[in-house]
Design a protein around this nucleic acid. Structure first.
Lengths: 140, 140
DNA sequence: ATAATAAACTTGCAAAATGCAAGTGAATAA
DNA sequence: TTATTCACTTGCATTTTGCAAGTTTATTAT
């Protein structure tokens, strides 16, 4: 399917060429929350992504090194997806999205709770969460 | 045209509902660089946005309070667009996109120069740039 | 004053991406 | 061995994008 064509050499444009659509960052979000997800897990998310779109986004994100597949320990029928380092490095961006949203939307309180945590010590949160995601990354 | 329908109450999802497409953040980028742009200025950007898409994005961004129109001092035929505070608040997000991109793409050196600046003192850069954009905001 | 140019869009249509519903095929569970 | 689960695929309608050619109002040149 997807051949990545760069519109320009601008960092913002190049980034959007990869994950600049309505769905990709939601997949990344799910992986940041859950560390690893199956195909079915993504389908269960609140936004109700269509299965064909999910498949094409997962492929795109994998081709661009944001996520990887791995075997599910329990079953060959299942596939686990997780973030690569390149994907984990989207965490600061994800945090800023949340901080911006908190200023301009009214959010459910479980989400607000996390954002409040982040605001208390952004650097600390980033370090800790990055580490957690990386740890998960290493136990194959 | 655009009636904003939220897919969920998630901050990431709500944010993407507004600017989660291939073009909106490029418009914001242009405004962060140039402080204010005419319709024609946007068309001149490297990525070559189609004029109808530009019109619909500008409308969307205006409806959602990210940008505003103002009269051009030189001519009634021209229109100036600038960021609102809500738009200016996307700066930290924009900065993180640049930092991520710098890690994973090879960028033109003028862009690298700015990113290097940012890395030296992120907080300082954010404060200074926000102030500049706000200053511009206030002289109607 | 009149005609030509420019600036900000609009319109029409083809092509691509999205969304929905119903498959398919391999693997596990009953 | 049959049924169910899981990860996708496929087909088709709808929506969005992209391209090219207008249209309209405002300025500039004659």
């Amino acid at each position: 399917m997807s051949e990545l064509k760069k519109r320009s050499s601008c960092p913002v444009s190049s980034s959007l060429d990869i994950w600049g659509d309505k769905w990709s960052l939601l997949i990344v979000r799910d992986l940041m929350f859950a560390k690893q997800c199956t195909y079915g897990d993504f389908l269960k998310s609140a936004e109700k992504i269509a299965t064909n779109i999910l498949a094409s986004r997962l492929q795109m994100l994998e081709e661009n090194g944001i996520i990887t597949k791995l075997e599910h320990p329990d079953s060959k029928a299942k596939v686990l997806y997780k973030l690569t380092q390149k994907g984990i490095d989207l965490l600061p961006l994800m945090v800023e999205i949340n901080l911006w949203a908190e200023k301009y939307f009214s959010l459910p309180k479980d989400r607000l709770a996390i954002i409040t945590e982040v605001k208390k010590d952004k650097e600390g949160f980033l370090k800790a969460t990055t580490k957690e995601l990386q740890r998960n990354s290493n136990l194959t």
